[in-house]
């Protein structure tokens, strides 16, 4: 088991993939190191949210994903 990182919206293009696996446990520093410098730059933007196991983190730097968790990287949204 591992952590699955999901890239949503335009981050999928930046990452070049819809998802990838990372070793658990995964914290904020580990996430930044895993996703590559371009995605990491965008993750530092306040408008980019992070969800772990189906919940949006109020403080993304407190990320601590465990085995089997899905971590979603959520760039600014546009609906309607």
């Amino acid at each position: 088991m591992a952590v699955t990182i999901v890239f949503l919206g335009p981050l999928r293009d930046v990452a070049g993939t819809a998802s990838r696996e990372a070793a658990a446990p995964l914290d904020w520093a580990g996430l930044l190191a895993t996703v590559g410098p371009e995605v990491a730059d965008q993750l530092r933007d306040d408008r980019v949210n992070v969800a772990c196991a189906g919940r949006v983190l109020s403080d993304k730097q407190s990320l601590r994903a465990m085995d089997g968790d899905e971590v979603a990287l959520l760039p600014p949204v546009s609906g309607g």
Partner: peptide, 22 residues
């Protein structure tokens, strides 16, 4: 729904797909 719901929108133009931000 326009700017605070979990959707991402892109449009296809003759050259390629373009992401749209609010």
């Amino acid at each position: 729904l326009k700017s605070a719901a979990w959707f991402w929108k892109r449009e296809q133009r003759s050259d390629a797909w373009h992401w749209i931000e609010p």
